[in-house]
Write a protein that binds this DNA or RNA. Structure first.
Lengths: 204, 204
DNA sequence: ACAAAACCTGAACGACCACTAAGTTTTCAC
DNA sequence: GTGAAAACTTAGTGGTCGTTCAGGTTTTGT
């Protein structure tokens, strides 16, 4: 009885519309940041009014969260199929390099995360919790891989998994920042490979 | 003759006033970024009107440049007395660790540079050229130190100075970012020391 | 002491912001 | 085809922003 008067549901093309908006928002947030990027910029990119955006996503913060969720879902999908499916250890690290290789072809992704991660250090930023959790997760994943490698006796002498895990994530972020300033000069994938290679005693 | 009608010059306390403004601007830009931090915030902190700020610094961009120049001057002063005065090589790297140790006690400094460096990736950002040059300089300095160490035979096997220099700077930025999210958990100085130690074959 | 330069205020300007409300058009189940 | 819900537009709200400017106050050389 109660379910009879349920809402009619979305139109057929609504999903595609939301997708358009999300991608425009991604581009704007990547280029201008969350605080500085405006709903008008996003609306103009889609060819819709500001109100139209807010019909689909109730507020600017909701839109940011949707963008992050979408990207996170995609990233996690890649990360899952490529990494978590493999046994931890060497394959993990190889997949990490592959992931970075893909990101180089999608510079907006790097720009978005670099900018939002910096903005997000403020405790009241809407993406603060997201990035706080993201770093914890990234470091933990790397830590597990390095622990596995140590058990396999593949770690070089003097490499401490905890320190190396934090450093690996830090190196990634730092390289991305330098790469954004000089994309042609910095070889992110090569530098990452070289650094990982120095952690392990077998060819990567 | 021509010099007769020269301007009278500043009042006695003007220098101190400018200093107050610079420090308030530093705090505001550190906490909210350049784009998001407002002249009103800065004016309130000083206890002056917005117009008062703009009398001393003609525009918001001028103020940012003054803040960066000031910080750069201080940083360069430290870097010069501590580092460039020493012969390049081990003392350089030791001084780098000391510099980071000091920065930990001035978190605003880290926040400012992390946020502005990310904002500055946009080519039209007023701090873009500053950070672009800064990274080139930092990497170059580290490169020179590592080259000197190689000539002294103090580099570990497989360490390539160019790669290691980029990585060292990247590690610094990345650690700062993680530290901003979890200041109590991340030991920036310790992690940096450990990473440097893995580049060289003698105790740091 | 007194003029002039330096300093500073307060009010206004135009532009932009996220968001709301009300009205219009499009879609879709029936 | 028709009615109602979904999708969207248009216009407006109250807010913040950097900057300008006319006018007042303070400091300073003479």
């Amino acid at each position: 009885m109660t379910g009879r008067t349920a809402s009619r549901g979305s139109y057929a093309k609504t999903a595609a519309r939301r997708q358009e908006i999300l991608e425009a928002a991604f581009a704007v947030f990547a280029e201008r940041g969350y605080e500085n990027g405006s709903l008008r910029d996003i609306a103009d990119k889609v060819g819709i009014s500001q109100g139209g955006i807010l019909f689909h996503f109730g507020s600017k913060i909701d839109l940011l969260e949707a963008v992050l969720d979408l990207r996170d879902a995609r990233s996690r999908e890649l990360f899952t199929t490529r990494i978590a499916d493999q046994e931890p250890g060497l394959p993990h690290l190889r997949a990490l390099v592959d992931l970075v290789r893909d990101n180089v072809n999608e510079p907006g992704m790097i720009q978005l995360y670099t900018l939002l991660a910096a903005e997000g250090t403020a405790a009241d930023h809407p993406a603060h919790a997201y990035f706080s959790g993201r770093y914890a997760w990234l470091v933990e994943q790397s830590h597990l891989s390095l622990l596995a490698l140590r058990d396999q006796g593949l770690l070089r002498a003097g490499v401490e998994p905890g320190h190396a895990a934090r450093s690996l994530v830090a190196l990634l972020d730092g390289l991305q920042l330098q790469w954004l300033y000089r994309p042609t000069e910095i070889d992110m994938v090569g530098d990452l490979r070289t650094s990982i290679q120095q952690l392990i005693s077998v060819p990567l």
